[in-house]
């Protein structure tokens, strides 16, 4: 009798604890989701056009490049690293893609070359970081310079413009005129990233390396392989983003993509990815990307000065990090 009572209480307690634990673990994501919903509600009241299908499609298309980059960045930050070379790789991969088309190669070949460029730069990042034990911050900062240098070298600073209509269609076209291809691409990339993180060994290893690299090593994980693949993945994402960007602006330019890495980092951090690694979800990053995108779009619709947009973005990042440190402190 006594025993059964006990069990029930324990069961109840367990349920409550599960709930509170789940809220605690995903606290940041809930906060971001809350802010996101709040913004959508406020914006749609103040500016009803905000919820217009066309505007929603617009926002989705606008965030697609950052979404793709932020996926790669999330992987990198989950291992406790950082990739500052993203923007520069986007520029140079775009130039390779655009240049290939100008040289008369077919569009698929050009796209593959562009993406491959990103993969190669990313792989170099990974191999050097692992091989020479360089801090990722330093290596990717160096790569930021080198990749952009290559871009300028290839173009002499001049843009490559006017591509075939079929290529422009990648960003312009879509199903039913509203589900644009970039939206499909970013959705696909997000789903693949999520599957990789949650359902593959590599994904688990990424979390383990970011959470405790020594424990991962003694548990028999090839931490060098895991880490270098993560930077390669970020390079792959840069390559895909490059194709989207070149198609969107109908130009491949060496000065393109400046500070894209910062937007990607911001999205990942706002989405609850811990800067020290080990914690974070793709879903959170998706929320982060949309939050930044909606801040930009909403303030533009309201005709608010771009400086306020910068302040708003900075404020949200700060808020996200404050929540991060506060929840971590509680656990300790």
């Amino acid at each position: 009798m006594n025993n059964r009572e006990n069990k029930e209480i324990v069961g109840n307690e367990n349920y409550m604890r599960k709930l509170s634990d789940s809220i605690k673990n995903n606290f940041k994501q809930y906060v971001v989701l809350f802010i996101l919903i709040l913004m959508v509600v406020v914006l749609s009241i103040v500016k009803p056009i905000f919820l217009n299908t066309e505007n929603v499609a617009n926002v989705m298309r606008q965030v697609s490049i950052n979404m793709v980059l932020a996926m790669g960045m999330t992987f990198v930050i989950l291992t406790g690293g950082i990739d500052l070379s993203v923007g520069a790789i986007v520029a140079t991969a775009g130039i390779i893609c655009g240049g290939a088309m100008k040289m008369g190669m077919t569009i698929p070949t050009a796209i593959i070359l562009g993406i491959l460029t990103g993969v190669i730069f990313g792989a170099i990042n990974g191999i050097v970081i692992v091989g020479f034990k360089l801090p990722p911050f330093i290596m990717t900062m160096a790569m930021m310079q080198m990749a952009r240098g290559v871009g300028y070298l290839l173009t002499n600073g001049n843009p490559i413009t006017t591509f075939p209509d079929a290529f422009i269609e990648i960003s312009k076209g879509g199903i039913g005129g509203i589900i644009y291809y970039p939206i499909l691409i970013m959705t696909g990339v997000a789903i693949i990233s999520s599957v990789l993180l949650n359902l593959t060994k590599w994904g688990r290893y990424i979390y383990a390396v970011g959470g405790n690299v020594e424990a991962a090593r003694v548990s028999g994980i090839n931490i060098n392989l895991v880490t270098s693949l993560v930077y390669t993945y970020s390079g792959l994402m840069s390559g895909i983003a490059a194709v989207l960007l070149v198609s969107r602006v109908n130009a491949a330019q060496p000065q393109a993509g400046v500070s894209y890495e910062l937007d990607a980092i911001a999205a990942a951090i706002i989405g609850g990815t811990s800067f020290s690694g080990g914690i974070g979800k793709i879903f959170g990053t998706v929320l982060g990307v949309f939050l930044v995108g909606i801040i930009n779009n909403g303030l533009n619709l309201l005709g608010i000065n771009i400086y306020w947009q910068m302040i708003a973005k900075g404020f949200v990042i700060m808020l996200a990090v404050i929540i991060d440190t506060m929840t971590n402190k509680k656990e300790q």
């Binding site: 500016k47 056009i49 217009n52 066309e54 505007n55 617009n58 298309r61 606008q62 490049i65 960007l245 969107r248 602006v249 130009a251 330019q253 000065q255 393109a256 400046v258 930009n296 779009n297 533009n300 619709l301 309201l302 005709g303 000065n305 771009i306």
Partner: peptide, 20 residues
């Protein structure tokens, strides 16, 4: 608005204006 001499930013801002 400022697009900082950048094509992609200009496109994004113009899209928002066309919406508004």
């Amino acid at each position: 608005q400022t697009a900082n001499w950048v094509r992609a930013d200009a496109k994004r801002i113009a899209e928002d204006w066309l919406m508004a």
